[in-house]
Simulated scan of single mutants.
Amino acid sequence: MMRTTTYGLFLLILFSLASCTRAIKPEALPSHITLGDTYYTQFVMRYEKDVHPTTNYRRGASIPVNTPVRLLKMTNKTIEVEVDNSSQHLTVKNFQKHTGDDVYQAFDKLFAPNKVDLSRFNALEKQHIQNGTVAKGMSKDAVLVAIGYPPMTQTPSLDGNRWVYWSHRFNRFNVHFKDGKVSWVEE
């Protein structure tokens, strides 16, 4: 009995350690990602309680596209940034099973060293990008900048004509496209 209990305890500790979040050392980061550097948000990000999940729930407060952030820390599951030279910290929690992205791929979708060129969008698209909303007539690129990437569990390819987003954990909404433009939004 003692041997079985000890073995079970050993397995529990082993699984606990395997699932722990590990800080990534600066020298282990890809060459284009540097702790302390400033990056810009690549789409309007929503967050609650200073957390943005990569499942990209469409609720909570927003951070506009092209907002400068300073990279503070990365782990194998999270990205921590300081927003716009303020005391506000935002933690991005990466849910790889929903996005298919490791933390580095998530970083590359969320942040870049350069601002998004908004001049390529028309007035309607710019207005909705600023508001973090979607409207009929917007291009796929404008939708990505306005509300980000849909989870791949329901939208395995951006080439499709229907993108499924999550309003929150239990509610979804669909963005339908025709000829590369939003034809309607189903909430």
Rank of each mutant, 00 (worst) to 15 (best):
N94F: 01
I147G: 06
F121C: 11
V83E: 00
G132M: 03
L72W: 00
Y149W: 14
V185L: 10
F173P: 08
E82N: 06
R172M: 15
T55Y: 08
G180V: 10
T4Q: 13
K25Y: 06
Y149S: 07
D102L: 14
D117S: 12
A23H: 06
I24M: 09
I13E: 01
P156H: 14
R58S: 09
T6N: 08
V185M: 08
K97F: 10
F177R: 11
T78A: 07
M74A: 05
F10H: 09
K49W: 02
S157R: 13
S139F: 04
T155W: 06
L17F: 11
I63L: 08
N114F: 15
S31G: 00
E125V: 13
G148P: 07
P151A: 09
Y57W: 14
I24F: 02
E80R: 10
G180F: 10
W166V: 04
I63G: 01
V103W: 10
A135E: 09
V145A: 03
A23Q: 04
L35M: 07
V134M: 04
K115T: 14
G132L: 05
L72N: 07
S62Q: 13
A18I: 10
L11P: 00
Y40C: 03
M152A: 12
I79E: 00
V182E: 08
L14D: 04
S87M: 09
G36L: 06
T155N: 08
M1R: 08
T91P: 00
S86W: 05
G148V: 08
F173V: 09
H168Y: 13
M45E: 02
D179Q: 15
N171D: 13
Q130I: 03
K93F: 09
N131P: 00
V145Y: 02
M152N: 09
